[in-house]
Design a protein around this nucleic acid. Structure first.
Lengths: 115, 115
DNA sequence: GCAATACTGAAGCAATCGCTTGACTGTCCG
DNA sequence: CGGACAGTCAAGCGATTGCTTCAGTATTGC
């Protein structure tokens, strides 16, 4: 169940763009065609198609061509994967504190009060 | 409590690079100086410094200059912020299913079995 | 059948990225 | 003091992004 670095690259890269995040937001309200997804944006359909491909490559969206239009829907498994990666790192850090005891936990800032 | 788009851009951009993710992994095992962080990598220190700056701009790492070396540590609040953003989206999608009923929940894949 | 619709693919272009080199600043050790 | 160490800054360079235009292709509706 190890994540390939390439996949994580693509997933986080897909998330690192406000237009693509807005598309994900839109897709939380239900599936949409590429044209519907394009509506709020002030750019060409070709650009939107490219964004959709990036989201799909990142495993965050799944698409299906029906007739002449392509329907996009959120891939919750993909979103959960990104979430899990982050959670694991945060957990590892917390575990470290547990092992070292509470002393460090009580000094998250520099004790000297510099700056 | 709203995330600025700019901040999310920087945060996910910081995560979208395997070298930077490897640095985060290293930092889950405890704070490290820039040089220590650079050790496993086959590139110049200047490149590592730039990566650290990207991680810091993304709110994932905090650094502190002590003497002539800079100590880096994981910013769990930043990581949690990224996590929360993803979780919110996934939750919205789930809520949608709840409202529509279980019918859709039982057909997450394309029923036609195309491809 | 024929036009409108909904993409799709390729080429091109400015901006950004990840990296390098090289010159520099500040700190520590003998 | 002087040299090694740990970073810092700036310029530059090839690759990748996000976008455009334009020329297709495949459906759909009249």
């Amino acid at each position: 169940m190890l994540e390939s670095h390439e996949h994580l690259d693509k997933m986080f890269h897909a998330l690192a763009d406000r237009s693509r995040r807005a598309m994900l937001d839109r897709l939380t309200r239900g599936p949409a065609t590429v044209s519907e997804l394009a509506e709020p944006f002030d750019c060409t359909l070709a650009a939107i198609v490219q964004h959709v491909k990036v989201l799909e490559a990142g495993g965050l969206v799944r698409t299906e061509k029906i007739g002449r239009s392509r329907t996009c829907r959120l891939d919750t498994a993909g979103v959960a994967r990104a979430e899990r990666w982050l959670q694991e790192r945060r957990q590892l850090w917390s575990d470290r504190f547990d092992r070292l005891g509470e002393i460090l936990e009580r000094t998250p800032d520099t004790p000297g009060g510099r700056e």
